[in-house]
């Protein structure tokens, strides 16, 4: 077992240092790159926080949709092929819900401020 602090705590400390101590001291292209860097750290933190339970849910949905077991990436390949060949489509029960849920979970990690995602999140909260 690795000891504390956790990866998330370490990354947050690094991001805090970059934002509070380094960002005010630089400008121009370097400042832009630093923003990209801190955004990348924040993204990794969100992935560490969120993706494990959500990946488990995605796997459960895929097994149900496709009627077979496999790894997350293998079942995603299988689903992609099934959509490409037309054996699965938006009329297939569960497909639209699965794609929506999976995509919302991706956005929660990748770009939680993306306007389309915010809009769809509000819709979920209001329904």
């Amino acid at each position: 077992m690795q000891d504390e602090p956790t990866p998330i705590e370490l990354l947050n400390a690094v991001a805090e240092f970059l934002r509070n101590d380094i960002a005010p001291k630089i400008s121009g292209a370097s400042a832009f790159k630093l923003r990209v860097a801190t955004n990348a750290i924040d993204l990794v933190v969100r992935q560490l926080e969120l993706s494990e339970p959500r990946a488990a849910d995605e796997l459960t949905r895929l097994v149900k949709l496709l009627g077979e077991n496999g790894s997350l990436v293998d079942l995603n390949r299988k689903l992609a092929d099934s959509i490409a060949t037309g054996t699965v489509d938006l009329q297939t029960p569960g497909l639209a819900d699965h794609l929506w849920q999976t995509t919302m979970d991706k956005l929660a990690v990748d770009q939680p401020n993306y306007a389309s995602y915010r809009r769809e999140l509000e819709r979920e909260e209001n329904s």
């Binding site: 955004n39 990348a40 993204l43 794609l99 929506w100 770009q111 993306y114 389309s116 819709r123």
Partner: peptide, 29 residues
């Protein structure tokens, strides 16, 4: 570059936009 790497994580933005175009959820908007 880090910028290119991070743009890779924007592909999911187009996935939600494709779903909004092709499989919109009830309620419009």
């Amino acid at each position: 570059s880090m910028e290119r790497a991070m743009i890779g994580r924007r592909a999911s933005e187009t996935e939600i936009d494709l779903l909004r175009l092709l499989a919109p959820r009830a309620g419009g908007g």
